[in-house]
């Protein structure tokens, strides 16, 4: 019987891990496509914020979460078009444009949220996507609670990752994306439209990031607050590299990040006075660095043309 608390502890951590990993995972899987196409978007944080706000405001006004999600997707496409216009068509430095996006994201969501919501005096909560048990599977002891008592946007990651992996590695579209990121010139000579593929890479990235941002509002917290993304866009960038630019790798890396984040919250909740809580908070970040060092053996190269505009 002594095992029970341990099992409950583990169960609770694993369930939290998946939830904590989900917003990062959405953004990271999308960014895999962006970077594979040769574009680095460090503006994910801003794109996620815009997605969160768009999702929130439409869901709040319409009372429909699905509409909210669609609005987030739309905002992601719009962000992507602007980002691509600057980085692909105008061939501007990608880091510059990304940095601008982070500022614009914080600025526009901050101003609009204040004017239309914070000072309106309305009750601002949404009814979020609720967790539900998958019949039969949810009854499996231990695993049931961990894997099959989540909300729809968490479950969806199980589809998104294999699908992304399939598209990236098994379809002509995915191979073209990879080609323009590795050897844009060669791709060009075999008739692949480099700018167009990069547009697609960017659009997939920003759309997924917006979904990740919207997840925070529609399926996690029930309200938008300024700065709700709290660095997840930056973590997603780290996760892409850490996951060696593959969708499954991104999933592994986000889960790893999630597990250490969940763990630090639980260790704090256990009331350990031996370790200062700030060290626990730093744990997920330190572990990421350590794992990155550990990966040195199977060093994976970044896409060769990453960050280089194509003439």
């Amino acid at each position: 019987m002594d095992l029970l608390p341990g099992i409950l502890f583990l169960q609770s951590i694993l369930a939290a891990t998946w939830r904590m990993a989900t917003p990062i995972l959405y953004a990271a899987v999308g960014e895999v496509f962006t970077e594979r196409s040769g574009v680095l978007n460090i503006g994910l944080e801003g794109v996620m914020l815009i997605g969160a706000f768009a999702g929130y405001s439409v869901a709040f006004e319409s009372g429909n979460l699905v509409l909210g999600l669609l609005a987030a997707i739309l905002s992601g496409i719009l962000s992507g078009l602007i980002f691509a216009l600057f980085t692909v068509t105008i061939k501007a430095n990608q880091i510059v444009v990304g940095a601008a996006f982070n500022m614009i994201g914080a600025g526009i969501t901050g101003v609009l949220y204040r004017v239309f919501y914070a000072e309106s005096g309305k009750v601002l909560s949404l009814k979020t996507f609720q967790p539900f048990q998958i019949p039969f599977l949810g009854d499996i002891p231990f695993l049931g609670e961990v894997l099959f008592n989540q909300n729809i946007m968490v479950y969806a990651t199980l589809l998104v990752v294999p699908l992304a992996s399939f598209i990236l590695y098994k379809t002509a579209f995915g191979l073209s994306i990879q080609a323009v990121g590795e050897h844009p010139k060669a791709a060009d000579t075999v008739g692949i439209n480099v700018p167009r593929m990069r547009y697609f890479g960017i659009l997939i990235g920003t759309t997924m990031a917006s979904i990740g941002g919207a997840f925070l509002v529609l399926a996690y917290a029930d309200q938008f607050v300024e700065g709700i993304v709290t660095g997840r866009g930056f973590i997603a960038l780290a996760v892409v590299v850490f996951g060696s630019w593959s969708p499954w790798g991104a999933m592994g890396a986000s889960l790893l990040f999630g597990v250490f984040y969940a763990l630090q919250l639980r260790i704090q909740a256990m009331g350990s006075v031996l370790i200062p809580y700030q060290f626990l908070q730093a744990l997920p970040y330190v572990v990421t660095i350590i794992f990155l060092i550990g990966l040195t053996k199977r060093r994976v190269q970044s896409p060769k043309a990453l960050g280089v505009p194509y003439k």
């Binding site: 939290a16 939830r19 904590m20 709290t230 919250l265 639980r266």
Partner: peptide, 18 residues
């Protein structure tokens, strides 16, 4: 921090689980 609603929720859940 003051903004991470999701982490705050997760911290709350972890207490309840405990």
């Amino acid at each position: 921090n003051w903004t991470d609603t999701a982490a705050a929720k997760e911290a709350g859940i972890s207490y309840v689980d405990g």
